[in-house]
Design a protein around this nucleic acid. Structure first.
Lengths: 95, 95, 95, 95
DNA sequence: AACGTTGAAATAGTTC
DNA sequence: GAACTATTTCAACGTT
């Protein structure tokens, strides 16, 4: 049921504005993060590697196992398919 | 179930190569676009302004329908709630 | 203290941990937003419509300045070229 | 008679519209690619792995060497920093 | 040619 | 589990 008029409109407005405030905070934090990366870069650190570090740290043991599983699957998929040599530009004759 | 070897590998290879072909086409088109810009520049046109023209026209063409849709919903949902103005930063004239 | 890199490793660690803290804050805020939606839903409001409201208000707030800027440029660049309409789907009033 | 009118406006319009046509073609191809992925998925293939295959095939030998170099660097960065254990949530046993 | 900026593509997460 | 949205990542572009 959608509420119209009176106190309900006021309530909705408060919800909306609260969310907008929170989203603004989120944006601020995103900017802060960007600043930290910029600082680190200025100190000679490689941002790309930093991102990899963060990603790795974010993974707990379970996720990491899964990740390796995916990697294995990928290797399996690649290695076991005879017609796949991972050379994008070359054709080989069918056996 | 992942398929290995035999006809399945062939099928996968065909999917992959099809995608590679399509991506190549995409790259070709990108190059064509670049060429058009180069031509236009050679004719004395300002590429930067051309890009903004394209952006504007895209907004006009793509977003207008969606925007109006959103607007309709907005009006329906909100138009009757007196305490809600929907223009966060601006005042409109009283009806 | 440490044999590799000394202060550098420490410094990197501080950058990383700072980012992790900020990302945690972001996640917290995301959760807060979710909670607000949940509350609003509990009060009978339609979350989907609320999202569209937010979207519209964002467009109003953020894009208006940029849009006008683009528009000015567009007018400048194009206004004098009679054969160029720039409103692909609509007619404008005759001058 | 203004100097910006006439044939110049026409020419600009042609450039713009040509680009718009090319961009549309690009979008069509993107859609085609999506369709191929959907087909492949329907045949039981894992889209994520397919993307990895494509990425790998895209890399020629040089790029792959560079990639491994990056990986090594990452390992170096990670392994040589004693304060980095890459287990964010766990305590490490004292040495 | 590195740099930051911006726009597109991919991934992850959420809802129905 | 399928679609939609949000977030993150990647690549192109102009700039210095």
């Amino acid at each position: 049921m959608v509420k119209f008029g009176g106190i309900s409109g006021e309530q909705l407005r408060q919800f909306i504005e609260k969310i907008e405030r929170l989203e603004q905070e989120k944006r601020d934090i995103t900017d802060n993060i960007k600043d930290v990366f910029t600082d680190a870069k200025g100190q000679g650190y490689d941002v790309k590697i930093m991102r990899q570090l963060l990603k790795l740290r974010k993974m707990d043991a379970d996720d990491r196992a899964e990740q390796e599983e995916v990697l294995d699957l990928y290797k399996a998929a690649l290695g076991m398919i005879p017609s796949f040599e991972a050379q994008p530009a070359e054709e080989q004759e069918a056996a």
